[in-house]
Amino acid sequence: MVGATAAVRLWILNGDGGMSGERYGLVRVEGEIGDSESVVDFLDTLREDSDVPGVLIRIDSPGGVVGPAQEIYAAVKKLAAVKPVVVSMGSLAASGGYYVACPAETIVANPGTLTGSIGVIMSLGSWQDLMGKIGYTYEAITSGEMKDAGSPYRELTPKERAYFQSLVDDLFSQFVEDVAEGRHMDEAKVRELADGRVYSGRQAKKLGLVDQLGGFEDAKDVLRKKTGKGDLPFDEGPVEEESLLDRVIGSVVSHVDGARTQQGPRFEYSLR
Rank of each mutant, 00 (worst) to 15 (best):
E155Y: 14
L167T: 12
F164V: 00
F172A: 11
E155H: 14
K189Q: 14
E177S: 14
Y136D: 07
F172I: 07
M185I: 03
P152N: 11
S143M: 10
Q165D: 10
M185A: 05
L171C: 06
G135W: 01
I141G: 07
A180H: 01
P152E: 09
P158I: 11
Y163E: 06
D186R: 10
P158W: 10
Q174Y: 08
P158A: 12
S143Q: 14
V179G: 02
D186H: 08
F175Q: 06
E187G: 07
S173D: 12
L171R: 03
F164N: 04
Y163W: 10
L171H: 08
Y136L: 15
L167E: 12
M185V: 05
E187A: 04
R161D: 14
Q174G: 09
P152Y: 01
S143A: 10
L171Y: 08
E181W: 09
A188E: 12
L156N: 04
Y136G: 11
H184S: 02
F164Y: 12
F164A: 08
A180Q: 07
S173P: 04
G135S: 08
F172Q: 06
E187K: 06
K189P: 05
S166I: 08
Y153R: 06
F175Y: 08
M146G: 07
K159R: 12
T157Q: 09
Q165W: 02
L167P: 03
D186L: 09
E160M: 08
G150W: 01
L156K: 06
Y136S: 12
G150C: 08
L156Y: 11
E155K: 15
E155V: 08
Q165E: 13
A140T: 06
H184V: 00
V179P: 01
G150Q: 04
G150R: 04
T137C: 11
H184T: 03
T137E: 14
L156C: 09
L171V: 12
F172K: 01
E145F: 05
E160G: 03
R183F: 02
V168R: 04
L167F: 14
T142R: 04
G144I: 10
F172Y: 14
R161M: 05
S166T: 14
K147G: 02
E181R: 07
E177N: 11
Y163N: 01
E139I: 09
S166L: 13
P158Y: 05
